[in-house]
């Protein structure tokens, strides 16, 4: 086939336009700004080289303290959310796979439906459910003669509330990815395993898991990225408290830029956060990939 370059380019052009305008330009601009002393209201106050990065990375400034605190909080959340969001999602998918016929569709829809609720609605619901003085959960605890818990302003309960909201909200998405992967596992492999007298665990470990490993690694990676971007839940449910312990990186960056009027510093924080995420994703990818080769 002989296809003119003009037609080809014209078809590519709309996408290219948007990509350049809304991706390339902001990307370059963000990095450029991060090397400057730049305020939101006053604009560019001059080139400062790596100054912003140095102040974030060396102890002794509030930027260092808030960034490191938020990085620690965010990594902590990534850590505690990984098992529930991935392993529980897989268990739910396995459960659904073993439920017959129409009921399977019903349960799948129920477990997935909370994903349609927006983060603010999720936060509003969980904020009131977990409210310390007079919240529903505490009232129920007291009805059973138990002490009420200050869910939202003491740790580890604040994290538990945020984790509960997040799991309820997003576990269905991961579950669906697993359900799809499980649907594709070759039935004959199970039959062969059954002939060998494998028990349920052996069947899972020797047949199911190797077949869905690609999806498993993918789910782990997207879950880590999503947890790293923690924002709405902590902003709305705990407002970063108690004592900044649920302040996430995105919240700190937004605060640095808009409340502290410091676009240069906030951009440097965003670039650092980006680098950390690329690094973590790269490691996960390599581990997942290498195991594939061995297996």
């Amino acid at each position: 086939m002989k296809i003119s370059k003009t037609v080809s380019t014209l078809m590519f052009l709309p996408f290219l336009l948007f990509f350049v305008l809304f991706w390339i330009i902001p990307f370059v601009y963000g990095i450029y700004v991060s090397f400057h002393n730049w305020t939101v209201s006053g604009g560019n106050n001059g080139f400062v080289g790596l100054d912003n990065y140095i102040r974030i990375l060396t102890p002794g400034s509030m930027y260092h303290d808030s960034f490191m605190n938020a990085l620690g909080n965010t990594l902590y959340f990534v850590g505690i959310s990984l098992v529930p969001l991935v392993v529980f999602a897989l268990l739910l998918a396995l459960l659904i796979e073993n439920i017959p016929g129409k009921l399977k569709v019903v349960f799948r829809t129920i477990f997935f439906i909370s994903y349609a609720v927006s983060v603010t609605a999720v936060s509003a619901i969980f904020k009131w459910l977990f409210t310390g003085n007079g919240g529903y959960i505490n009232n129920v605890l007291q009805t059973f003669g138990l002490d009420s818990i200050r869910w939202l302003n003491t740790q580890p309960y604040a994290w538990i509330a945020i984790l509960a909201a997040t799991v309820w909200w997003t576990i269905g998405y991961n579950m669906i990815l697993f359900v799809n992967a499980l649907d594709e596992v070759d039935e004959s492999l199970y039959e062969a395993a059954a002939l060998d007298g494998a028990n349920a665990w052996q069947r899972f470990w020797n047949v199911t898991f190797p077949s869905i490993k690609g999806v498993f690694v993918f789910v782990v990676i997207i879950t880590v990225i999503a947890s790293f971007n923690l924002y709405g839940q902590t902003l709305l449910i705990t407002e970063g408290g108690p004592a900044r312990s649920t302040m996430s990186l995105t919240m700190i960056i937004q605060n640095t830029i808009f409340s502290q009027n410091n676009l240069g510093m906030g951009s440097a924080m965003a670039v650092l956060m980006g680098i950390i995420m690329v690094f973590i994703t790269g490691i996960q990818y390599m581990i997942g990939f290498r195991k594939d080769e061995n297996g």
């Binding site: 902001p26 990307f27 601009y29 960056i253 965003a270 956060m273």
Partner: peptide
């Protein structure tokens, strides 16, 4: 590249 690098600029 994560979106956070893009969104503010």
């Amino acid at each position: 590249i994560p979106g956070i690098v893009i969104v503010f600029p």
